[in-house]
Amino acid sequence: MSIRARLAVLVAVVVVLAGVATAAVVHASGRAARRDDQQAGGPVIRPGRVVLTAAAGAGTTAPASGAASATAGERLVFRSTAWGPHRDELVSVPAADPAGPRTASGVRCLRFHAAGGTGICLRRVPGVVGESYRAVVLGADLRERRDYPLGGIPTRARVSPSGRMAAWTVFVSGDSYAGTAFSTRTSILDTRTWRLDDTLEDYRIVRDGRTYRSPDANYWGVTFADDTHFYATLATGGQTYLVRGDVAARTVTTLRANVECPSLSPDGTRLAFKKRVASLPVDAPWRLTVLDLRTMRETALAEQRNVDDQALWLDARTLAYALPGDYGSDLWAVPADGGGSPRRLTTAALAPAVVG
Score class of each variant (00 low, 15 high):
residue 2 S to R: 12
residue 3 I to Q: 11
residue 10 L to Q: 01
residue 15 V to P: 02
residue 28 A to Q: 12
residue 30 G to D: 15
residue 34 R to F: 08
residue 37 D to Y: 12
residue 39 Q to W: 10
residue 42 G to K: 06
residue 45 I to F: 02
residue 45 I to A: 04
residue 47 P to D: 13
residue 52 L to S: 01
residue 57 G to F: 02
residue 59 G to T: 10
residue 61 T to P: 03
residue 63 P to S: 03
residue 63 P to C: 06
residue 75 R to L: 15
residue 76 L to S: 12
residue 79 R to T: 15
residue 94 P to C: 11
residue 94 P to L: 14
residue 98 P to V: 02
residue 101 P to V: 06
residue 103 T to Q: 14
residue 106 G to V: 09
residue 107 V to T: 11
residue 113 H to L: 06
residue 114 A to V: 02
residue 124 R to H: 13
residue 133 Y to S: 01
residue 146 R to G: 09
residue 148 Y to V: 05
residue 170 V to K: 04
residue 171 F to S: 02
residue 180 T to I: 12
residue 183 S to R: 10
residue 187 S to R: 03
residue 187 S to D: 04
residue 219 Y to W: 07
residue 220 W to M: 15
residue 228 T to Y: 07
residue 237 G to M: 04
residue 243 V to R: 03
residue 269 T to C: 14
residue 281 P to E: 09
residue 282 V to T: 13
residue 282 V to I: 08
residue 286 W to N: 13
residue 289 T to A: 05
residue 291 L to A: 13
residue 295 T to V: 11
residue 300 A to I: 11
residue 306 N to P: 15
residue 308 D to T: 15
residue 311 A to N: 04
residue 325 G to I: 06
residue 327 Y to Q: 10
residue 330 D to Y: 02
residue 333 A to C: 12
residue 335 P to S: 01
residue 338 G to S: 02
residue 340 G to A: 00
residue 349 A to G: 12
residue 350 L to V: 07
residue 352 P to T: 13
residue 353 A to F: 09
residue 356 G to Y: 15
